[in-house]
Write a protein that binds this DNA or RNA. Structure first.
Lengths: 226, 226
DNA sequence: GCATGTGAATGGATTCACAGCT
DNA sequence: AGCTGTGAATCCATTCACATGC
């Protein structure tokens, strides 16, 4: 190995697991919080306490980005934050299209998290003629689904959000692929046969409720009083 | 072991992992679909193809419920469905309260999945005086947060949904615990220090978006054309 | 001394492969 | 023959523990 190597060793980003990237997102939040508190330096130990995580895990996760910690001291908050932003691809705004202007779609378009740091909803599409031409509270216009391709071209849309009923989800996904979208967030409770060209992430709210139901059934159904 | 044992061996439900229960929910959906198609029997092989899963995993998961498959044949759709419903505690309706009547809370209260099989939103609470006394489109009333305890008592509420901004989330969770709620779904992007008495499940929509951003950054940012 | 970065050890979850039942 | 149920093997993630560097 050449001496004096300064650039962090090439990190194979493709080898970072999704579990890890999820935690990187969480660390990023925490760092932003620390920055707002004017804290300059943080140790893996201190971070671990905040999240009930193991400090070794945090160090392993962060080591994926290269060596940015300072031994004996900890991590520089600002520098580490910048590396996380970089690694997660949040240096530029990613544009979204939401398919489905029903309750869920409308909620998402108005939801802060979908229009905050790094993300922006540029349009919605829906099949209901009554909705076409209207706008969300926040001003996002609703178009016919057939216009998806044009919208994607025009705004360089990168992420599609599927907020349509289950049976319609597959055809929406297919349309997104055809339009050139490379990543999608699927809220429909359906198993989409997915193409090579697109990365789909499922968010299934009912599974979460059912998981809580399972918990209640096994632990809390047997509560003593009541 | 006594011969002629007919009841399935006692299954320790506490040993079923969350990953497994999540898949049980998915299987349940699929079985409902199959039932609507009048299909009586299904093999783990066939189920596996639908979900891109391994058939051994499905068999292991289902074995958690006891031995219900028929060797050489497969699983009886109706019977298996009933066992899943049972195991997941979906035999009776679980009542929900949603804290936060903002965009997200309103979306959730109107969302089908939150008022479908087994779940029912009975009330919302919010701190904004302008919202108190109003109702959601679907008719769910909005109360002051201070009334949480009464609502929980009155409707035997079992699940709390936290749909308030990050900073308010912890105090809402505390109030839910105080009111006797045993399970919560948290949409706030905050790390809640959790009590023994309550099971909290986090749903972080931003993490999902950031995960897609990470994917785009590493695979799709380097697309050839465009 | 103190905290990182990391090989080694552990712990889970997934997959394989086959014995056993229908 | 066909498919389940499951020990054994494998794979992946987490945790431990310590050498390394500030």
């Amino acid at each position: 190995m050449p001496a004096g190597e300064r650039t962090p060793r090439a990190v194979n980003r493709e080898t970072i697991s999704e579990l890890t990237t999820g935690r990187l997102s969480i660390y990023l939040r925490c760092l932003e919080h620390l920055e707002s508190l004017q804290i300059r330096t943080i140790s893996s130990q201190a971070l671990a306490e905040q999240f009930h995580l193991n400090s070794a895990q945090i160090r392993k996760d962060l080591a994926c980005l290269g060596e940015f910690g300072i031994r004996g001291v900890g991590y520089d908050v600002a520098a580490l934050k910048q590396h996380l932003v970089d690694t997660l691809g949040l240096t530029r705004v990613r544009t979204l299209v939401i398919a489905g202007a029903g309750n869920l779609g409308m909620a998402l378009v108005n939801y802060q998290g979908f229009n905050a740091r790094g993300f922006q909803v540029v349009a919605m599409v829906d099949d209901d003629p009554a909705k076409i031409g209207k706008r969300s509270k926040s001003g996002v216009p609703i178009f016919e689904t057939s216009e998806l391709s044009r919208i994607v071209q025009e705004h360089q849309v990168e992420i599609g959000v599927i907020a349509v009923p289950g049976p319609a989800a597959q055809s929406v996904l297919d349309a997104m692929v055809a339009a050139g979208i490379r990543a999608a967030l699927n809220f429909a409770p359906a198993h989409l046969s997915t193409h090579q060209e697109i990365k789909v992430k499922d968010v299934d709210l009912r599974i979460n409720l059912e998981s809580l139901s399972f918990y209640l059934r096994n632990c809390a159904d047997t509560y003593p009083s009541r």
